[in-house]
Amino acid sequence: MSATYILFWFLSALAVVSALMVLFSKNPVHSVLWLIAVFFAISGHYILMNAQFLAIVNIIVYAGAIMVLFLFVIMLMNLNKETEPRKNIWMKLAGAIAAGSLLMILVSLVGQATELSHRNLLMKDGDIGLIKNLGKILFSQYVVPFEITSILFLSAMVGAVVIGKKD
């Protein structure tokens, strides 16, 4: 029971509990804050799996940009009071059954994968996820997808402005 293992379990429990709290909190602002906790836990997992740059990118992009956008929209639309007024019990039941049965299928599949069951991940080892190695490959092998991503961003920005403007 090493320190890394304890840290892994702590981060996993934090991620799952925060994800449940995202769904079960009525106030959308609380949901956003719990979701930021999920993102920080997942960034901890990335650091344990030697993806240091990815952990920082995850925090900057998700917790810094996307969640702040969500918070702005919630505050602008005055949604920070108790929403979800009427509960449809059949809807919740159907969602629980559908998601739960799919969950059971995937859990049993992962549990039966004997190929994976005794494999271990080396944690806290290697420096392949550092920005130096990652940037070299990103700008040599993956330069075409990188540029296509920039076109995607440009079109998304134009689309957001066109859709969101008052007419």
Partner: peptide
């Protein structure tokens, strides 16, 4: 340097996926 079974990470991922799906 320490080892963690891959399957635990997969279970974490499955759990988060279906919390989101619900």
């Amino acid at each position: 340097m320490s080892q963690t079974p891959l399957i635990q990470i997969l279970f974490l991922s499955v759990g988060l996926f279906f919390i989101g799906m619900y």
